[in-house]
């Protein structure tokens, strides 16, 4: 089973207008920057993206905003910490202008919604957000005397993930904190496209150190290690 695509552009060529895409990475760590850049080149529009942040530390996503490709963003830390810097960011401007719809979830709820989709679950009850604005419009139910909110799974059409090493069959090994959202997003999506720093033959990865089993990964493309200077404000 060889899942390797010859180029980034080939790997994302079928993404249609209106697609939903989960994008791995936590600020600068483990973000599949080259796949995002390929999506900007392709220019698919009316997209829904699901990712941790829409700029701070992940400015690679900004071209998608500037080019008007994003209709909706689902995030947990969408804005710059600094309101001054945020006021000038294309994403914050697009949200204020009503050009991009923004949905925000607590970080744990956000990734659990994706995990649930990958695990065949329709929904789950979480104690997070009870008594806050996050409970609006959601079923609240008591178990053993404690209140929980019903959160439904979200299943993206595509996932873009990043891995340190990957084999041709799609088994992936992540490195340090660059693992973050990548495994659960890979499992959640119908089609997962993995950007890997080091592409190897099947059998070359330690089977005990695979963080993303190949069954979740439909396409693999080799990329150069991106250069990030970790920082946000």
């Amino acid at each position: 089973m060889d899942k390797v695509y010859p180029s980034l552009d080939d790997a994302i060529a079928d993404i249609p207008d209106g697609a939903s895409i989960a994008i791995g990475g936590f600020f600068t760590a483990g973000t599949p920057v080259q796949l995002i850049q390929a999506l900007a080149r392709k220019g698919a529009k009316n997209l829904t993206v699901m990712c941790q942040s829409m700029g701070p530390g992940n400015e690679d996503i900004t071209p998608l905003v500037v080019q008007g490709q994003i209709r909706k963003a689902i995030c947990n830390y969408p804005f710059y910490r600094s309101a001054t810097r945020g006021a000038d960011s294309p994403f914050e401007k697009a949200v204020r202008a009503g050009q991009v719809e923004l949905e925000v979830y607590p970080m744990g709820t956000f990734i659990e919604k994706l995990r649930a989709a990958g695990a065949g679950l329709a929904a789950f009850y979480t104690p997070t957000g009870v008594g806050t604005v996050a409970e609006r419009g959601k079923e609240k139910r008591k178990f053993n005397g404690r209140e929980y909110l019903l959160e439904v799974a979200i299943k993206p059409d595509y996932a873009f993930v990043y891995a340190w090493r990957g084999d041709r069959t799609g088994n992936l090994t992540c490195r340090k904190t660059a693992r973050n959202y990548n495994p659960d997003m890979a499992a959640a999506a119908r089609i997962t496209i993995a950007a890997v720093e080091g592409l190897v033959e099947a059998g070359e990865l330690d089977p005990d150190k695979i963080h993303i089993p190949g069954i979740y990964v439909q396409r693999v493309v080799q990329v150069d290690r991106p250069n990030y200077i970790p920082s946000i404000d």
Partner: peptide, 22 residues
């Protein structure tokens, strides 16, 4: 911080709600 001018359900939640209840 509502002074940022967004509706009150829009902001950087991050991990704070999970940590606060967990």
């Amino acid at each position: 911080n509502p002074e940022r001018g967004f509706p009150e359900h829009i902001g950087n939640i991050g991990g704070s709600m999970d940590l606060a209840v967990g």
